[in-house]
Design a protein around this nucleic acid. Structure first.
Length: 795
RNA sequence: GGGAGUUUAGCUCAGUUGGUAGAGCACCUGCCUUACAAGCAGAUGGUCAUAGGUUCGAGUCCUAUAAUUCCCACCA
C-alpha cells in the first residue's frame, strides 16, 4: 500500500516507464479523431531556461487533456538546429569563426554541438514530464527536413512566388549575412546629430544639413529639402559641395522631407537608411556603396577605407571639426534597427538575394489570420498589426554556412538560374551536379553553385508540412493541423511565415487554433534573461529540487498569454497540493482494499459529492476547450480541497464505523470515494503526471485496465439525482461550517461534543442528512424548526 | 505617433452572459480531530486606478483620463 511519496525516486521511474511503453505514442491505425499539435522546435542556441519549461508545459497540458478525452493525439517534437543561432552558439563555445574555417569542417562542428545540445534538451523536457512523442522527432538540419525545405522553395519558384533579386537587402555586418525585416529589433542607441555646411558656389552661401551618419558623406548623392520650405527655395536645382570630398551634388525637393527635423535639409546617401532607399527609387538616384559586408568603409571613403563604421565616424567628425565645416554636434539617443540576434545596427547592401513575395498577397495573409482562432483572441491583433506593416518581401537567402542549401546553380555564361529537380532532393549544389548538363538558355555547360543557405524560418515555416508528411496521403488528412503553440514574440516570424507558406503551397490554413503563452519574468519589470543573469533557478535545479510535478503546477498558475512572475510561493502551494493528494489518496484507499465496484444505494451527501464533481468537470472542460489551462486547474483544485475538508470529514465516520452506521451507509461512502478519487486523479494527471501515475499504478490500474493513467479516459460519474442535490449538500456544508465556527470561536476542540443543536429555517430535506451532520459535528440531538430565519444554535 | 494587455485585499491573482466582492499566500485567534501540524477550524483585511455615462442595478457595458507592460512606427 502507499507509503511515503518520494518524488526523487518516483519521477525518474515513471519517466522511464512512459518512454519505454510508448505511452504517448501517436497511433496511426487508430479510428479516433486526430488532434495534431505543431509544437515549436526549440532553437538550439544554448541551454534551456525556465521559460521553455513554462511555455512547453502549458501546451503540453492540452496534449494530455485531448488524449484523455477521446483524441488520437499527434504531438511531435522537433529541434531547430540549423542556422544562425546554432552557428553563433558554436562560434562562442568552440571559439571559432565560421568564415575562417573550411565550410565542411565548420558544418561538422555544428552537427556535433547540435547533437550534444539536443540530447540535453530532450533529457530536460522528459525530466519535466513532457508528453511529446519523441519518435515523431525531427531536426531541421536532417536530410528529411532539408528535402521538404528545398521542396518548399521549388514549389514557390514554380509558382513564381520567389524571385532572385539584385536589390538592397537588410544586412548584418556582424553576422555578415542578409536578414529579414522580422529579425530586426528597435534599440535606443547613443549617437550624435552633426550639423554640417555644404557650400554652394553659385549662391556663395552654405546649406546646413544635419546627420547622424557623417561617415556616409562619401556616398552622398544629393541633398533634399521640402518644396515649400522658404528657407531653402533658392537652393533647389543648384549644386552644393560635399565637404571633405569636394564633389558636387544637386539639391532636390521632396515633400516627404520633414521641415522641423534637424535643419530641414537632409543629405541622401545610398544607403544610409530606409528613407534614402525610398528616395533613391523615387528619384532614380545613382547608387554609391560606402560600407562593405564586414561593416568597413569601402574605397569611395578615401582615407577612411577599411575603417569600421564607428571608427570612421569618429575620425570624420574630427576632420570636419578641424576643417571648420562642422557647426555643432549634439549628443542624442535615437531608435536604430538592429539585428535581434547580435544587436548590431543593420545596413542596407546590394547583393543578389532570394526573396519570397509577401507584398502581393498581404490581403490574403490578413484574411487567413482572421480565420485562425487565436487564444487569447487579442493576440490576433499582433499578427494583423505586423502583417499590415510589412513593407519588404521576405529575404530568405543567408550568406552563412550551417543551414539548408538553396538548391540552385547559375550558368557561368549567362547567369541563368537552374533549380534542382524534386527527385534530387535533398541537394547540396556545392557537391551535387545540376539537373541539366547544358544551360537551356545559352547552351553553355559550366555552372556556378549557390553558396547561400536558407533563413532558418524558411525551414521552420514548413513544420506543418514536415509534421504531416507533405506529399503523402496523410498530409491531406491532417492539414490543417489542430493547434499551433508558441510564445508571443514569434507571432511575427513563425506564425506569420507558416501562414505564408501554407497559403502558397496548399492554399489552406496551416492550423485551426493558435495558443499563445507568455514569458517568465524575474520581477515586475524584468524578463528572465541570460544577460541579466537573474534566473534564480536553472530548469534542472528546479526539477531536481522542487520536482517536475510542482514545476508544472507553477506553469499552470499563470493565465494564458500573460507573462508570469517567478514566484516561490506558487511552488510552495504546488508542493502542498502534491502532498495533500498523496495523503488523501492514501487515506481513502486504505478503506478500499479489494474493493468491488458495485453501485450501492447512495446516501444524499454521497450523491452530492458526485454531482459536484460532474459540475466541476464540466467547467473544467469548458476552460480546457478554450485553452485556459490555469483556470481549469483552479477549478479542479478548489473542488479537491472541498472534497478533502468537507466530504472526507463527513464520509470517514461511516468508513470507520460500519457497525454504527450500517454496511449500506459505508458502501455508499466507499463508492463515492472510489469514483471521485479515480476521476479526480485522471484530471490531476494532466498537471501532475508523476504522483497521479504512482497512485494509479499502485491501486487503480486493476480497475481501469490501462497500463498508465495517461492512457485512460476522463469520465463523468453516473448518478441518479436531481439538480437540487447540489443545493442540499451545500446547505449541509453551511450547517457544519456553523458548528465548526461555534467551536472555533469558543476555543473548543472540533471533537467537542454538543448535546443539543437547533437547526432553524432550513428546508425539510436537511433531515435526510441527519446522521452525517451528527457524526461530523459530534452532535447528540438535533432539533429542526422551520418558519424562521436560517440559524444554527448550539445549546 | 498607432495598436494591444494590465490596473480588484499587504503580496500573487480569479471573477464566464450586468444581480449582495472571491481564492491562495502573509498576518491574527484557536484546535494534537482514529489521513495529512507541509494539517484543521475560524477572524481581520477591498470607494474593484480616476471621472463621467447607460441601467431598477456596473468590478463587469460605453466615453474620457492616468499609471504600467508589450508590439509596431520613429533612424536624415
Amino acid at each position: 500500500m502507499l507509503d511515503k511519496y518520494n518524488f526523487k525516486e518516483s519521477e525518474p521511474k515513471w519517466q522511464e516507464f512512459w518512454q519505454k511503453e510508448r505511452v504517448y505514442a501517436f497511433d496511426p491505425n487508430s479510428t479516433k479523431p486526430i488532434f495534431s499539435i505543431d509544437n515549436p522546435p526549440p532553437t538550439v542556441s544554448g541551454h534551456i531556461h525556465i521559460g521553455h519549461i513554462f511555455s512547453y508545459s502549458q501546451s503540453e497540458f492540452i496534449a494530455r487533456y485531448k488524449r484523455m478525452t477521446g483524441f488520437n493525439v499527434f504531438y511531435p517534437f522537433g529541434f531547430d538546429d540549423n542556422g544562425l543561432p546554432t552557428e553563433r552558439l558554436v562560434e562562442k563555445m568552440r571559439d571559432v569563426r565560421a568564415h575562417s574555417l573550411p565550410r565542411e569542417e565548420f558544418r561538422d562542428i555544428c552537427l556535433d554541438v547540435a547533437k550534444q545540445f539536443e540530447e540535453d534538451y530532450k533529457r530536460v523536457f522528459i525530466m519535466a514530464g513532457n508528453s511529446a512523442d519523441f519518435e515523431l522527432k525531427y531536426n531541421t538540419v536532417s536530410d528529411k527536413v532539408q528535402k521538404i525545405s528545398q521542396k518548399s522553395f521549388l514549389d514557390l519558384y514554380k509558382k513564381g512566388d520567389v524571385y532572385y533579386g539584385d536589390k538592397p537587402a537588410i544586412w548584418c555586418p556582424e553576422c555578415r549575412t542578409s536578414i529579414a525585416q522580422a529579425e530586426l529589433e528597435s534599440k535606443e542607441l547613443e549617437s550624435s546629430f552633426n550639423y554640417i555646411n555644404f557650400e554652394c558656389e553659385e549662391l556663395s552661401k552654405a546649406l546646413e544639413i544635419a546627420t547622424t551618419r557623417p561617415e556616409m558623406l562619401c556616398a552622398c548623392v544629393c541633398v533634399f529639402v521640402h518644396p515649400d520650405d522658404e528657407r531653402f527655395k533658392d537652393f533647389v536645382g543648384k549644386e552644393v559641395i560635399v565637404p571633405l570630398y569636394n564633389f558636387k551634388v544637386p539639391v532636390l525637393a521632396d515633400e516627404t522631407v520633414e521641415k522641423d527635423k534637424g535643419t530641414g535639409a537632409v543629405m541622401c546617401c545610398t544607403f544610409g537608411d530606409e528613407t534614402d532607399l525610398m528616395w533613391q527609387q523615387k528619384h532614380n538616384l545613382p547608387i554609391k556603396l560606402a560600407i562593405d559586408d564586414g561593416g568597413r568603409m569601402t574605397a569611395i571613403a578615401g582615407k577612411y577605407e577599411g575603417m569600421k563604421i564607428k571608427v570612421a565616424r569618429a575620425e570624420i567628425i574630427k576632420d570636419l571639426q578641424e576643417s571648420g565645416k562642422l557647426n555643432k554636434s549634439e549628443q542624442i539617443t535615437h531608435a536604430v534597427s538592429t539585428h535581434e540576434r547580435c544587436g548590431t545596427p543593420m545596413e542596407l547592401l546590394i547583393k543578389k538575394q532570394w526573396f519570397v513575395d509577401l507584398l502581393s498577397h498581404k490581403e490574403d495573409f490578413l484574411k487567413m489570420g482572421e480565420k485562425v482562432k487565436w487564444y487569447p483572441d487579442y493576440m490576433k491583433n499582433r499578427y494583423i498589426d505586423w502583417v499590415s506593416n510589412v513593407d519588404r518581401d521576405w529575404c530568405i537567402s543567408r550568406q552563412r554556412y550551417f543551414g539548408v542549401p538553396i538548391p540552385v546553380w547559375y550558368c557561368r555564361h549567362c547567369g541563368e538560374v537552374i533549380v534542382a529537380n524534386e527527385e534530387q532532393l535533398p541537394v547540396n549544389p556545392l557537391v551535387d551536379k545540376p539537373p541539366v548538363s547544358t544551360c537551356p538558355k545559352c547552351g553553355h555547360c559550366e555552372f556556378e553553385p549557390e553558396t547561400d543557405v536558407f533563413d532558418t524560418w524558411h525551414t521552420s515555416s514548413v513544420t506543418p508540412q514536415i509534421n504531416c508528411g507533405w506529399g503523402t496521403e496523410r498530409y491531406n488528412k491532417m492539414m490543417p493541423m489542430s493547434l499551433r503553440t508558441n510564445a508571443h514574440e514569434i507571432i511575427r516570424t513563425w506564425d506569420f511565415y507558416t501562414i505564408v507558406k501554407s497559403f502558397y503551397h496548399s492554399n489552406c490554413l496551416p492550423w485551426e487554433n493558435v495558443m499563445i503563452s507568455g514569458f517568465v519574468m524575474a520581477d515586475k519589470d524584468n524578463k528572465i534573461s541570460k544577460s541579466k543573469n537573474n534566473a534564480k533557478f536553472s530548469p534542472e535545479s528546479l526539477l531536481n529540487e522542487k520536482s517536475a510535478d510542482v514545476t508544472r503546477y507553477w506553469s499552470a498558475t499563470g493565465s494564458l498569454g500573460k507573462d508570469i512572475i517567478f514566484s516561490e510561493g506558487e511552488f510552495k502551494n504546488g508542493a502542498k497540493l502534491v502532498n495533500k493528494i498523496w495523503n488523501a489518496s492514501k487515506f481513502v484507499l486504505s478503506f478500499l482494499t479489494d474493493y468491488e465496484v458495485v453501485e450501492p444505494k447512495l446516501l444524499p451527501i454521497d450523491k452530492w459529492v458526485i454531482a459536484k464533481f460532474n459540475q466541476m468537470q464540466k467547467n473544467f472542460k469548458n476552460y480546457m476547450d478554450k485553452y485556459e489551462i490555469g483556470l481549469a486547474m483552479a477549478e479542479l483544485e478548489r473542488y479537491f480541497w472541498n472534497f478533502c475538508d468537507n466530504y472526507i470529514e463527513i464520509a470517514k465516520r461511516r468508513l470507520y464505523n460500519p457497525q454504527i452506521f450500517g454496511q449500506d451507509a459505508t458502501d455508499s461512502a466507499k463508492y463515492a470515494c472510489f469514483m471521485v478519487l479515480k476521476e479526480m486523479l485522471k484530471m490531476f494527471a494532466i498537471y501532475l503526471p508523476h504522483i497521479c501515475e504512482e497512485i494509479y499504478k499502485d491501486y487503480f490500474e486493476k480497475y481501469e485496465k490501462e497500463i498508465s493513467i495517461h492512457k485512460t479516459q476522463m469520465q463523468t460519474i453516473n448518478i441518479d439525482a436531481d439538480d437540487n442535490i447540489i443545493k442540499q449538500g451545500d446547505d449541509v456544508v453551511e450547517i457544519v461550517s456553523n458548528i465548526r465556527k461555534y467551536k472555533s470561536e469558543n476555543n473548543l476542540s472540533l471533537k467537542y461534543e454538543i448535546e443539543n443543536l437547533e437547526i432553524k429555517g432550513y428546508p425539510e430535506y436537511v433531515k435526510e442528512y441527519d446522521g452525517d451532520i451528527k457524526a461530523v459535528g459530534c452532535v447528540h440531538n438535533i432539533i429542526y424548526t422551520s418558519n424562521e430565519e436560517k440559524e444554527v444554535v448550539i445549546k
